[in-house]
Simulated assay, not measured.
Amino acid sequence: MIKGFKDFITRGNVVDLAVGVVIGAAFTALVSTFTESFLKPLIQLIGGGTGVSAGAWEIKDGVVIDWAAFINAVITFLITAAVLYFLVVFPMNKLAERRKRGEEPPSDTPSEEVLLLTEIRDALVAAKTPQQQRGALDELLDRNDSRR
């Protein structure tokens, strides 16, 4: 059980996830501070009023509904979600789409099929008569079957 946990922790994905969570939390705090410091006062001014009652409704016995804080939280969420989508999700989706289409760089070594076809081509070019071509082809195919 400990070995499995150690393998899980030492994988690169866990470290990337931890870094992402820390950066996401710091970014959310930044956006929250921005909306709390700049946007919420604007919302309260637009909502009519200054002081404690700006952007809030007093219902009864001092119970206050702070609708400006709710709108502020919605704006914070939308800004955070938009930035994460356009800087993380959208590029990752594009990368996955490219991989699915097969746009990854080709490997340096040719496949086994390509090597066999190259040998067959070279043997047929080297042979002069159809009998020699047939013999060279049979020899190559027999040699390839014996490798398997």
Rank of each mutant, 00 (worst) to 15 (best):
I23R: 05
I65W: 13
L30F: 15
K94Y: 11
M1H: 14
I2M: 09
P105F: 10
S146Q: 13
Q133C: 03
I2F: 12
A68K: 00
A26K: 02
I79C: 02
T109R: 14
L84D: 05
L78D: 10
D61T: 06
I71M: 06
L115A: 08
E112I: 11
V89A: 10
I9W: 09
V125P: 01
L30A: 11
I9S: 08
S37R: 08
T10Q: 12
N93V: 14
G24Y: 03
V19P: 02
V22G: 05
A136T: 05
S53W: 06
D66E: 07
L140E: 08
F86M: 08
M92K: 15
V21A: 15
K94S: 14
G102A: 10
G12S: 11
I46G: 04
F90C: 11
R121Y: 11
I71Y: 00
D138Y: 11
I43Y: 04
P110F: 08
M1P: 09
L17C: 10
L140R: 11
L115T: 06
E139P: 00
I71C: 05
E112M: 13
L124H: 02
E119F: 01
L45K: 10
R99Q: 14
V31K: 01
F5M: 08
T109W: 02
T35W: 00
P41V: 02
A25G: 14
T76A: 11
V83W: 00
V15Y: 11
P105E: 10
V22M: 13
G20A: 05
V31Q: 03
E112N: 07
S32V: 02
E104H: 04
L39Y: 11
